[in-house]
Amino acid sequence: MSIYYAWCQTCDPLKTTQAWTSGNKDVDDCIKKFQLKATSYKNVIEWIPFNKLDNVQKIGEGGFGSVFSATWLDGKRAVPKDEWALTLTQSRTPSCVVALKTLPGSQKNFLKEVEIIHLFYNIEKLVYGITQNTTNDEYLMVFQYANKGSLHEFLLSNFRELNWKSKLKQLVDISKNLIKLHEAEYIHRDFHSDDSIYGVLPYVAPEVLIERLYTLASDIYSFGIIMTEVSTGKPPHYKVEYDEILAIKICNGLRPEFAKGTPECYIQLANKCMEANPSNRPNAYDIRKNLLEWFNILDRDVAYDKNELTILKAFKSADEIIPTLSTELPDYSKDKLTSKLLNFKNLSEPINSSSAELPKIYG
């Protein structure tokens, strides 16, 4: 028995696979696969009967499927901390709010998505289980409810309070997750089938818009776009419509701006990620290596050589400029960041335009 986790690795995993069924062998096998791998009571994925979910409300929709909020009547698994107890006990919280996510397409595709969740077990508990809507037989994943909103909303709300050390920490964490996905040869993208491409236009790599083919390098392009958003606190190309005209410009080398004062090393890495030629983009390991190196320099606030001193000074200088930057979004609609079907014609072969090769700065 593990006292810390209130978990017996010998007997508890097997117990969790018993006395329940979803009514579908494939779904049961998928859930039990992860239950047998569980290393703590709180990290067990469950089959959650739909009648245990109350007040189901749609909160989002796009090419990726639909997202709902709901109250889980049973509550999530918990191990109460009692300093006087000799051992920890297995328990549950009171009812709690969770998020439900559907996926368009077949059950096989849904289970493929579920297969990815074990990659994040060592990071945080993201997924509680699987359920099935009894009105339409659609399967849904039951997630931790993130009431802080998206990265975009977080940046808008906290931009002037975030220094570059905090920004780099966010990107280091994202790149760590991306590495795990790439190690599993899984591309972190919106779901698509056949020749249909879904996504938010500025985040989609130009080769995907043309060839309808995702690769690991397509993820790297999207990461580069996120780097520009972390720099400015604003969505990419927010001043224009996300339409075919923008798609044409992206293929011709248009890239988002960076905020005034953004360190040159940061701009160069982001631009490499957004290279028109996928083979010229860095991999997730190299990206994280650079970001982590910069974060560590800022974290210890000490430079050990001239190169580190240059990096430290650049990010310190950038911190001083952050309070002067504008975070206003005139005439901006949140619907622009909703995943949509992308089906554009007459797109040219992606290039790096001469202007795109130079860092773009806004004040």
Rank of each mutant, 00 (worst) to 15 (best):
V98F: 03
G199D: 03
H192Q: 10
H118D: 13
I197L: 12
P235A: 05
Q144K: 15
Y186R: 07
V204P: 05
H192G: 14
V97A: 06
E211Y: 11
Q90E: 11
G105D: 00
T131L: 11
P94L: 08
L151R: 09
S150F: 12
Y121I: 10
R212Q: 12
K169L: 15
L119K: 03
K180R: 14
Y145V: 01
I130N: 00
F120V: 03
L178Q: 01
E113V: 08
G224W: 00
N109D: 03
K148D: 11
Q90Y: 01
L140P: 05
E124H: 11
Y128H: 14
V127Q: 09
Y186E: 09
Y214E: 07
E185C: 14
S157N: 14
I130T: 02
V204D: 05
P94I: 06
Y203P: 04
D190I: 02
I116F: 11
V204S: 11
G233Y: 07
S231P: 03
V172N: 06
K112W: 00
P94Y: 02
Y139Q: 02
I174E: 03
E207W: 05
Y203V: 08
A99V: 02
I130V: 15
E138G: 00
R189P: 07
L100Q: 00
Q170G: 05
Y221P: 01
T228C: 14
V204F: 10
I123R: 13
K108A: 11
Q170N: 08
I226V: 15
I226F: 10
K148L: 12
I174A: 08
L178W: 00
S150L: 12
P206A: 03
W164S: 06
W164K: 09
S218A: 11
H182V: 06
T93H: 05
K148V: 08
Y186H: 13
E115D: 15
S150M: 13
R92L: 03
G233T: 06
P94T: 07
P94A: 05
E229L: 12
F120L: 13
P206S: 01
L168K: 04
N177H: 12
K108E: 14
E138D: 11
R189A: 14
Y198D: 01
Y128Q: 02
E138S: 11
S106M: 04
P202C: 13
I179R: 09
L213G: 10
V200R: 03
T232H: 02
T93M: 12
Y198V: 08
P206H: 07
N177P: 01
T89R: 13
L181A: 06
Y221E: 00
L126I: 13
Y145G: 06
T228G: 12
L168G: 09
I187V: 15
D137A: 07
C96Q: 00
G149Y: 06
D194T: 06
V204H: 04
N109E: 11
G224M: 06
I187N: 03
N177E: 13
V172I: 07
I187A: 07
